[in-house]
Simulated scan of single mutants.
Amino acid sequence: MSIAANVEAPKADLSLAAHGRTIPAERLGPLQPTDSAIGIDAIRHRYEEDGYVWLKGLLPRSEVIDFRRWVFSRLAETGLLEPGHDFALGIAAAEDVDWSLADRRLMSIVRSAAYEGFCAQPPLVRFMDAFLQGISYLHKRKLMRYTKPGTATATPAHYDLVYLRGGTSRLVTAWLPIGDVPAEMGGLVYLEGSHAIGRGMEAEFRRRSGDLSPEERISAYNSHMAEGGWVSKDLPDMADRFNARWLAADYEAGDVVLHSPYMIHAATTNQDRAGRLRLSTDIRFQNVDDEIDARWNNHWSLRDML
């Protein structure tokens, strides 16, 4: 069995944009999926080589869809959802959203037993134990994001270690689409081969950070970092600068993407023609015996500066 499953090139008419810039077709490529049946050693090797693995169908699809339905049922009172549809569809309302209430409900959801159970479901935990070659530790600070179609919301390019410098660098981020997330819905895109670029950037930061206090050195908001710890908001420029492609995918409920803490990634705007909300969560695992960044021992809060 081959390591990569069959995958098609991005659709010819696919247009992905973020922060007012459209990624040219020649700077787009396909994220390569991995069949989990190839075995943990081969998966780990591919992760080291590519900086990511996109595991198809690792989680039960029906349970992911049910959780999507549960999340949106809890957000319905905010006006975020168009009435009259199955909450699992996640059809966004056109207007009259109470964003303050939506923020409060989101913070309640990420503190819920249901969310904890979703992130720590047995198939994922068993896989991470094997992948990390020991007992896996799931960081308490876990992020959930929803994105309305037709808005400018998009996560700029970054690598995750910027926000987790207070512990081990042997971290693994797991990104879980909560529902189907075709490329035009604004799922994660990865800069091809950029785990090597991220390592170089981090080495340069360490070289220049001798004048910083220990507290500043681990902060993504210190004087040597760009705003918010981002690498760039200009995805086409980054692709040109490093002569690389942004790798995109049509994710499905049940998929899991693991990526290196040095892998540069971003999200694009939600251009879903059916008006569906993109829903996803990103969580961090590590071996429990490695040093843990104590700042991540609290639940995620909006504007917590991490």
Score class of each variant (00 low, 15 high):
residue 4 A to H: 14
residue 6 N to D: 07
residue 12 A to W: 00
residue 13 D to T: 15
residue 13 D to F: 08
residue 15 S to N: 03
residue 17 A to M: 09
residue 18 A to L: 03
residue 28 L to E: 06
residue 28 L to H: 05
residue 31 L to K: 14
residue 38 I to M: 06
residue 46 R to P: 00
residue 46 R to L: 04
residue 47 Y to C: 06
residue 48 E to K: 13
residue 50 D to H: 04
residue 53 V to A: 04
residue 61 R to Y: 12
residue 62 S to G: 06
residue 68 R to Q: 09
residue 91 I to C: 01
residue 97 V to D: 08
residue 101 L to Q: 12
residue 108 S to P: 00
residue 115 Y to F: 15
residue 118 F to A: 04
residue 130 A to S: 13
residue 132 L to F: 07
residue 135 I to F: 01
residue 137 Y to I: 09
residue 139 H to L: 12
residue 146 Y to V: 07
residue 150 G to V: 11
residue 150 G to P: 10
residue 154 A to W: 11
residue 158 H to R: 01
residue 164 L to V: 13
residue 171 L to R: 07
residue 171 L to V: 06
residue 171 L to Q: 13
residue 172 V to H: 01
residue 184 E to D: 13
residue 188 L to E: 00
residue 191 L to C: 13
residue 192 E to A: 12
residue 201 M to Y: 13
residue 202 E to V: 11
residue 205 F to E: 05
residue 210 G to D: 11
residue 211 D to A: 13
residue 224 H to M: 05
residue 225 M to C: 02
residue 227 E to M: 02
residue 228 G to N: 08
residue 228 G to A: 07
residue 240 D to E: 13
residue 241 R to P: 01
residue 242 F to S: 02
residue 248 A to P: 03
residue 255 D to S: 03
residue 255 D to M: 03
residue 259 H to A: 04
residue 267 A to E: 10
residue 271 Q to L: 05
residue 272 D to N: 15
residue 280 S to Y: 03
residue 290 D to K: 14
residue 299 H to A: 00
residue 305 M to K: 12
